[in-house]
Design a protein around this nucleic acid. Structure first.
Lengths: 150, 150
DNA sequence: AAATTTAGTTTGTGACACGAACCAATATAG
DNA sequence: CTATATTGGTTCGTGTCACAAACTAAATTT
């Protein structure tokens, strides 16, 4: 956490010369705050949004979801329960394995995540409003090259 | 959330050409995962770590903490309760205002946040291991210039 | 056919967050 | 200088989220 969390809160908009760690931690909290607010506008927690995001182009088993989200299997049960209760996702039996359950997003869920994603895009644009076009591109390229270590 | 959360999970280590939003969201999850793991090694949740981080160089009132953390006052009560129960922080009466409570980190709490911060530093270094020195510096500078809106 | 592994759920516990209701202390109004 | 806000914190009730341990059912292995 370093002086980060510290700096993170004080809006030192001046050139305080943050360390790499501080800058990244601060940035991550700003992005998470955006995800939280955008989701909240549609009653989606960050984790629920993440779930729907994954299901956009996948129909994974519960176990695969646990790996994607880095959560315990038992946490996935509850997560999918709540989403299913709201009609955002659906469980289906896996034809090839009687034990497995496949999770798919419903139309309602897809609409919701699409809407939320658009809002996130707008807010991110606002977040980086002080950067020039080329700077944004460089930031995107650098951030994109960071490999989430296993 | 965009295809982000999607991409976020699949370790597309190849050059998939992420959008700015996707890259930042993905990066933010990677950083949060680091904060979570580093904290967990010392039984500190992200929010508890953030609390201690703030208290490193401040002795705010409960209301100020709520503003820093963007949480409801009632959430702060519980947060500080748990930290105080563990001897990480301490409540003291504000001499100038009979209603206010000031929160300060204890030596134990300071030691803990120092330790955790060091671990975060190491993990962040690992996270950006594929970037060259100058690239890291540019990333740091760009990230540092992003103003947390509001 | 028996033993083991794998997939998910259940149960119990705790952290975290919110909003509404509440008390005490300070500020404001008249 | 009282009467009325307003402000600072806590309490209470509710819900989400996460974990670990115990358990069932369906593969797999032996």
């Amino acid at each position: 956490m370093s002086s980060t969390l510290t700096a993170m809160e004080a809006d030192t908009s001046d050139a305080a010369e943050l360390s790499l760690t501080d800058a990244l931690v601060q940035l991550s909290f700003a992005v998470q705050a955006i995800l939280g607010r955008a989701g909240a506008d549609h009653d989606l927690s960050i984790i629920q949004g993440r779930l729907l995001g994954i299901l956009r182009d996948r129909e994974p088993t519960m176990a695969a979801l646990a790996r994607y989200l880095n959560l315990d299997k038992s946490s996935i049960t509850g997560l999918v329960d709540r989403a299913e209760r709201r009609g955002l996702v659906q469980r289906t039996a896996d034809p090839s394995d009687g034990r497995s359950v496949r999770v798919a997003v419903t139309d309602k869920g897809r609409a919701l995540i699409e809407l939320t994603a658009a809002e996130v895009d707008r807010e991110i644009a606002l977040l980086v409003r002080d950067l020039s076009g080329p700077e944004r591109h460089r930031l995107s390229a650098l951030a994109g090259r960071i490999a989430p270590r296993l």
